[in-house]
């Protein structure tokens, strides 16, 4: 009976894991992200707030991220990272396939300055520029890609691109610095 329950459990998990929502993005490699990001940080989300922009055009969400490790680039100890979408007073604007933030989560982010708002960053490459960090059973820190099926990620010919795989955080840090070095960028 237990075996049946576990088989059904796995089946239900598979069904529950189906994608949900979408916009269309051209794939950007980690090498390219490391080349173009103004900064790459590992940090914890201290707070998250959603609000209408001053123009009243759209709801945005800002996360305050406490930087624990500046993998690449220089920056403040707390960065303000903005994404599109959020909920205000029971009204939700969903920006399909864009990064989302939750208080308390630990992230590795490829950042770029927001072109419209001073002292605010955005995630470069949308969901491809964001990893959630968690510790596995062996105590290793793993960076998990967060690209969900809200994002249709395609190459320049339109073919779908396989999502990135989870990677040890230390390995990812090393790879980013190597890619930056190859691109001729100063490395921290």
């Amino acid at each position: 009976m237990r075996r049946w329950q576990s088989v059904l459990g796995v089946g239900l998990l598979l069904v529950a894991a189906v994608p949900a929502s979408g916009s269309t993005f051209i794939h950007i490699s980690r090498g390219e992200l490391a080349k173009r990001a103004s900064a790459v940080v590992v940090g914890n989300v201290l707070s998250v707030e959603s609000f209408w922009t001053r123009s009243g055009q759209v709801i945005v969400t800002e996360a305050m991220v406490e930087v624990e490790d500046a993998v690449l680039g220089e920056g403040p100890s707390v960065v303000r990272v903005r994404t599109f979408g959020g909920t205000v007073n029971g009204y939700t604007v969903e920006a399909h396939g864009f990064p989302t933030f939750s208080q308390g989560e630990r992230l590795l982010l490829f950042l770029e300055p927001d072109a419209k708002v001073a002292d605010v960053s955005r995630v470069l490459g949308y969901q491809e520029g964001m990893y959630r960090v968690a510790t596995d059973k062996a105590g290793r820190e793993i960076a998990y890609p967060v690209v969900d099926d809200g994002a249709a990620v395609i190459d320049v010919t339109g073919k779908p691109v396989a999502p990135a795989r989870p990677i040890a955080l230390d390995e990812l840090r090393h790879e980013i610095r190597e890619n930056a070095r190859l691109a001729g960028r100063p490395v921290n």
């Binding site: 979408g22 269309t24 490459g125």
Partner: peptide
């Protein structure tokens, strides 16, 4: 790298 984006309210 964004081609087109949809927002639903």
């Amino acid at each position: 790298n964004c081609l087109a984006a949809t927002f639903t309210g």
